[in-house]
Amino acid sequence: MTGPSMSGGDIALDVRNLRTRFGPQHGGVIAVDGVSLTLRRGRTTALVGESGSGKSVTALSIMGLIEPPGRVIDGTVLLDGRDLRTASDREMEAIRGARIGMVFQDPLTSLNPALTIGSQIAETILAHEPVSAAAAHARAVTLLEHVGVADAAARAQDYPHHFSGGMRQRVLIAAAIACRPGIIIADEPTTALDVTVQAKILRLLHDLQQEMHASLLLITHDLGVVASMADDVLVMYAGRVLEHADVDTLFHAPKHPYTRALLGCIAGIEDDRTAPLQPIEGLPPDLRNPPPGCRFAPRCVHAVAACTAAVPALQTIADGHSVACFRAMEALGDD
C-alpha cells in the first residue's frame, strides 16, 4: 500500500496502516481498518465520512486515547520519527496539548463546569511548561483575546455556562493552541453550531493554522466545510479510506464511486427542486458483520464480482491521488 506523495510542506505526522478494534464484547468491531494519512506543516487535511465511519476513532487512536475494550492493534503513528504507539503514558501526556492540540465536537461537555474559563486554559499551560500560575493566567487571557473573546480579562473569570456555544468552542480552541502545538486535530468542531457561528469558527481555525504554520486535521461530515477548509481530503467509509486527493481533484475529478455518489447527495444551496437528487440506496454496513471485499460494494451501482471477492487496496493513480477501487481507472458513467 503506497500513500500518495503530496507536494509541498514537510511532514508533521505520518500515520501508517492504523487498525483499531473494539471488542470482543461488542462482537469484535474493527472500527479503523488500515488508515494511513500524512499531515503536513501549514496544510489542512480533512477526514470526511458519514456517521460511524471511524473518523473519531482514528483521531483518538492517533492521540493514544482509545480506552479498553478498544485497542489499537496495528500500525504506526510517527511524530518526528518517533512511533507514538510505543510511547509511555507519561510521554503521551507530554505530547498531548504541547505537540498535538485537540478540539472536540461538544463544546459543553469538554469543559469543566466547576472551573473558570481562564483557569482551564491556564491548567493546560501549567501542565506542559514551567511557568508561574500568574504567568499562565496572563497567557490564558491573551489567548482568549486571540480567539476573539471580547473583554477577555473579565470573561476569563466566568464559568462555561456563561458562554454561548460558539464562545465555548473558541475557549476550547484557545486551550488547544495554548502551547502552540504543531498539529491541531479538530473533531467536528462546528457540528453543534449555527452556520453564522460556524463561519467564524472555521475562519478562526484557518487563520490560527496559517499563522502558526501548523497542520490541521479537520474531521467533518459536511462536504461544504471540506471544500472551504481543506487542502487534502481523505474519504472514509466503514473504517477504511476509500479515496485520498487534494481538494480540487476530490470535488472535480473524484474517482471512487462512493465519493461521486456522496457528492450527488448533497443538497446545495444552488440546486433547485428540478435538479435530480441521487441518493445512495441502502445503508452503511454493520461493522459487526462487514461485507466481504469492498465495503461499499453492496451499495455501489458499479460493483462487479471482483468487488466482493477481494479488498481493493488504496492505489496511487496520480500524484497525490489514491483510490481504493478496482474500477478506478475505468471511465464510469454516472448511472
Partner: peptide, 13 residues
C-alpha cells in the same frame, strides 16, 4: 455563511 461544496467557488476566506 453557508459553505459551498465547491473549492473553486468558495474557500473559508
Amino acid at each position: 455563511a453557508i459553505p459551498i461544496a465547491d473549492p473553486r467557488r468558495m474557500r473559508v476566506r
